[in-house]
Every structure is written in structure tokens, then in C-alpha cells.
Design a protein around this nucleic acid. Sequence first.
DNA 1: GGCGTTTTAGAGGGGCCTCTCTCTTTAATT
DNA 2: AATTAAAGAGAGAGGCCCCTCTAAAACGCC
Lengths: 200, 200
Amino acid sequence: MARPPRYDVSRFLDAAVELAAAAGPSAVTMAAVAKAVGAPSGSVYHRFPGRPALLAEVWLRTVEGFQEGWFAALGSGGGDPRAAARAAAVHVVAWSRTHPREAALLLYGAADFAEADWPAASAGRAAAGHRRVGEAVAGLCAALGAEAGPAADRVALAVIDMPLTIVRRQLRRGQELPAHAEELAGESALLLLGAGPGNR
Amino acid sequence: MARPPRYDVSRFLDAAVELAAAAGPSAVTMAAVAKAVGAPSGSVYHRFPGRPALLAEVWLRTVEGFQEGWFAALGSGGGDPRAAARAAAVHVVAWSRTHPREAALLLYGAADFAEADWPAASAGRAAAGHRRVGEAVAGLCAALGAEAGPAADRVALAVIDMPLTIVRRQLRRGQELPAHAEELAGESALLLLGAGPGNR
DNA sequence: GGCGTTTTAGAGGGGCCTCTCTCTTTAATT
DNA sequence: AATTAAAGAGAGAGGCCCCTCTAAAACGCC
């Protein structure tokens, strides 16, 4: 019925990830992606209505791929919220180890991927993911017995931001992560959460 | 002997900081800086030989301004390395509170400011600053009695990266920092350093 | 085989940015 | 007052990028 696509959509996104990891989101230009894939620029515009849509897709695919495993890790504690938090923190590092280029993207923010110009559908996906993470953090927060106020900051810090910080320097430079990074992330998460149940 | 400058160099750098904080380093173009100051583009090139030199100066002035107070805080412990570490971590947050736009720059890396294209003098300044920080961390490390190997990572995490992470989200969005951010940074630093003297 | 649909293919306009170049202005020195 | 050096001022070339537009190619179906 129709000509089969010569280039898969994921090939464009993969190339975009590589460009962004190597030289930042601003290096992800329509021309650069097309060149990296070996396709004419028209083919890029056939799949993405514009640069903001491409950037949104790159960001969302990466973030959602990351969150998938992160939610699984958070639910793997067997009822113990401490164990779940530790698993989530460790997962951040482990995923970064196996997906170094995509993890390098997470070190930027959605704002660096032209979030303000995203199409509505992409903005909705981002909001949904953000909401899911917020709910998970709140749930963990409640399971730990802390009041939901200032402690939510600390919980998010322990299971997301802190592990990312541990791997930040290496990811930025494209270096291998140290062997004990997972352990450090898990241990630090427990430290941050364990300093007192009603911490402030 | 000569015509006095109408625009101070710092005005160009201030404008560049504002642009970078608002829309990322890629928004710092020669044309944008000139327009923000109200000067013709030629005046920008009178002061900076090119865009990489301008970006280098923006980055280095910001980083060195930050480090100045950070070194002071680190030396203020009165001999107690724990207190010094806490003061350094608190300083990161406090400085971010008083310099939100410049702190937003630190969340990026030198690589995002075209570090690869910097003139030699700028690269040297960056290396010197980096070395000073490394020595300070190593000294703190020794004072804490830990072996210099993997613990250096953890010390750097406690007194630099972790505090920056605490303020990251708010700085990115231009929001006010929460009132207890300094406390959280200091407390977290002590937690990270206090889990055991020969930690691994 | 002709047809319709999807995709490839790439040329080209318009815009922004970097950088160069020339000319003018300004003020201290002679 | 003439000179000189620094700086202002802005036009314009060249390049890259975003995006549009037209034409051709490849496949399944009637």
C-alpha cells in the first residue's frame, strides 16, 4: 500500500541522544540528526513536525525509559519502605551504568530541551510522568511515617537527585562509573532517610 | 590619551550571566549580549576576541566568585574538620540564595560554555581553580582521617555536589530557596561524612 | 500493469549569528 | 591647536540552521 520506511524513527532518536550526550541539547539540530543518520533533512521533518517536537520525543523517551525501571525498583521492597528507597537509589546508578548516554541527558532539564515550545501532547506526557513520580515519592514518604511537608524534599533528594549527583561528573565526561557507586547511592539514601522519622 | 570606555566590561558579563541563567549558555550570543547592554556588536568584540573567550570569562568569573567564599567557609572551622565541612556545604546554599542567577550557571558545566574552544589563559585559570578545590578536598579528607582513595569522592559529594543538588530544582525555575535549605545541606554533609571514618 | 499512498530526496528561502571591516567620536598628551 | 590612541558605531559578508516545497521512488492492491 505504501513505500516502506527506510529509516526507523528510533534511529533518529538514537542519533539525537548521542548528539545531546556529546555536546548538549543545543547540538541536536535537525540538520545534525539527519546527517548522523545519513538521511536528508526532509525525512526528519516527515517524522517530527519541528525541532521542539523532536527534542520533546528525545527527552520523553529517555525519561520514560528511566522511570520504568525506577518504579519497578521502588515497588520491589517487599513492604519495607527503606529497602524500596535503597533499591530505587541503586537503580538510578545502575541504569546510568548501562545507559550512559541517556543518563547524560537526565543531567540536563526539560527546559534545555525547549520544553516551552513542546506540542501539547508532549507537555501532557511530561506532566503525567511528573505526577507519577510525585505520587510515588509521596507514597514512600507516607510509608516512612514522615509528615508530607518538608520531608518530601528530602525523600526526593535521597532516591533521585542524590544518586544522579553521584554519577554526574563521570557521565558528563563520558567516563566509566566507579565500582562502588551503587553502594554509595544506596547507603547515602538510607542515611538521608534514616536520620529520624519525623525529620525536618 | 584615549577615549574612556562607555560600557564597563562587567556590564557585558552581567548581561551574559542573566541570559545564561534565563535560557541556558546557548542563549549567550554576541548579538544578544550587545543588545542587552545597548552596545553595538563591535564593542563586544573590542573586549572579547570571540564567543569562546566571552563564555570563558562568564564562567570563570562566576566560579571564582563562588570559590572565594567557599574556601573561606572551609577554613572557618577552627580546626574541626567536621565544622569546616558543614560550613562549606552551608555556604554553597547561602551563596546560591544571594546569587541565584550566578548559581544557576554552576548547574551547567564548563563544557556547556564551550570549554573546548577556550583560549589558553582561560583554560589555565580553570585548571588552577580545579586544582585548588582538589587540594582542599584532599586536605579535608586527610583531616577527617580517611584514606585518600574512594573517600575523596564522598567528601566532594558532601561539601559541593550535594548542596548544589539541594538547590538545583529551585534555581532552574528561578524560584526562592526553601528556608531550611542551608540546614538540610549542612546536616546532610555531616551525615555523609560521619557514617564512619574509614568509609567505603 | 496502473494507481494511490507513503516515503525519500534535496533544493532553496529566510533568519539569526559570528566575525571583519571601516569610519567616527572622544579625550589626554604635546 | 594638532596629534594620537582607545573606543564607539554599524554595515555587511559568510555560514549554519529551520523549515517549506516540489519531484521522484518504492511498495501493496485492484
